[in-house]
Amino acid sequence: MAEVQNNPILKYFRASKLPHIWCPGCGHGILMGALVRAIDKVGLDQDRTVIVSGIGCSSRAPGYLNFDTLHTTHGRALAFATGIKLARPELKVIVLGGDGDIAAIGGNHLIHACRRNIDLLLICFNNSIYGMTSGQYSPMTPTGRLATTAPYGNIDRPFDLCQLAAAAGATYVGRATSYHVTLLIELIAKGLKHKGFAFIDALSQCPTYYGRRNKLGPSVKMMEWFKEVCIPVGAAKKMTPEQLRDKIVIGEMVNTPDVPEYTEEYEKVKARAKEMSAG
């Protein structure tokens, strides 16, 4: 118990709100743990950090975290976060959401937040399924997999969220999994330090609704699968598309720090407006 009390990351949690609602074996706790370790590593001020989420399993995470937190409507977390950041640019704003939240109902907000390059960090807790509503297919469910709304197999093709974010203009993009925790912490920490829009595709396992139905589980087996199919971005560059089929590329995909950041650009707008109205 003493060990727990001295745990340096305990201060980032609202201990009274634990245990969390996630199923045994769910990857989301690992991802939330990675987030607070990265926050600790970077040394964010807890009173000057806001964590925003949408609706879904992962979006319950802010409730457990000891910051100013906002649990919004489904898909809209980035838009709420944009308002917070623009109103008080001195705050650090982190957005969490699941793959349904971020890539389906919130897809439009995702690409536009990337395009603006506004200084937010977005982590997609990507478990390839709608967990909160018990296992419907998401835009991240691989083709051929089963879901309650794809009882004959999913015919949709999933996004590559990192490529989507990069193409839309995100200036920091990376991917890791609940297995590759050290990498995940490193990517989140770098994303937090990045001035501009940072996107982390954090793959997670849902043994309850995705693993079980598709006979991929239990949880440990799903994490071992991450270990097997993930290829570091450096190694992937030397591989052919054939060799990369059915593989998942992890690591830092984009890091372009010199792109103008939105709130800083808006400060220039204010200066121009004042100058022009005075003159």
């Binding site: 806001v50 838009a79 944009t82 308002g83 917070i84 109103a87 907000h109 536009h112 808006y266």
Partner: peptide, 23 residues
């Protein structure tokens, strides 16, 4: 601050976010 958002949903969301930040 003025921002033209990507749609009406996000405009309303950004307003709520900004208000929570004190504006």
């Amino acid at each position: 601050v003025f921002i033209q958002m990507e749609d009406e949903l996000s405009s309303m969301a950004a307003v709520v976010g900004a208000s929570l930040a004190g504006a």
